[in-house]
């Protein structure tokens, strides 16, 4: 998959933030970042079976002196809630990029409940949320959100809106 114009800048922002571990549950909207990570000898890319694994992996990375990012889609946010007690209790950074579903021309109604609840659920769990709607803002929001996470040791999520990603086409 070729990256949309903003996606290479987002990967560059992850690199500039000195992130060296990238955990993911696949999503089409993250496909470019995942491909780049696997091709990058200085990035350890790990595929997960469920999203909360990535929170624990990021905690281990921090204990060992590295920085991690978790890529997931909004449907995975609900899987993460109790595991968020880990970075909060341990006053560790946590940084995640979330592709939104269920909000912009969504075809699949099963994506709507968790997509709608994502910002409120993350907020209730103590995660700082930043949202990207415009391609021109993506890299800057990622860069400054990573700085907030790693420099102030707090959990931060960047939500990539479904309008930005493009609604998944089911019927061509």
């Amino acid at each position: 998959m070729s990256g949309q114009t903003w996606q290479p800048a987002v990967y560059a922002a992850l690199k500039a933030a000195r992130i060296t571990q990238l955990a993911y549950v696949p999503d089409a909207g993250h496909a470019y970042l995942i491909e780049q990570a696997h091709a990058d000898p200085d990035m350890e890319a790990v595929v997960l079976t469920t999203e909360e694994e990535g929170i624990a992996m990021a905690a281990g990375a921090w204990l060992g002196g590295q920085r991690a990012v978790l890529l997931m889609q909004s449907s995975g946010v609900g899987n993460c809630i109790n595991m968020l007690s880990l970075p909060l209790n341990c006053r560790m950074p946590f940084f995640t990029l979330v592709t939104m579903r269920g909000e912009w021309g969504e075809f699949n109604p099963w994506q709507v409940p968790m997509g709608s609840a994502t910002p409120a659920v993350l907020g209730a769990a103590g995660v700082h949320c930043r949202r990207v709607d415009e391609p021109k803002d993506a890299a800057e929001v990622v860069a400054y959100s990573a700085a907030l996470a790693f420099d102030s040791a707090v959990p931060v999520a960047v939500l990539f809106s479904q309008r930005l990603i493009g609604a998944k086409v089911f019927v061509k």
């Binding site: 571990q21 350890e44 790990v46 909360e52 694994e53 990535g54 929170i55 624990a56 992996m57 990021a58 905690a59 281990g60 990375a61 921090w62 204990l63 060992g64 002196g65 590295q66 991690a68 595991m83 880990l86």
Partner: peptide, 12 residues
């Protein structure tokens, strides 16, 4: 979470 903390730590 224990095993996954171990993985992030082992990579680091």
């Amino acid at each position: 979470g224990a095993a996954m903390i171990g993985l992030g730590l082992a990579i680091a």
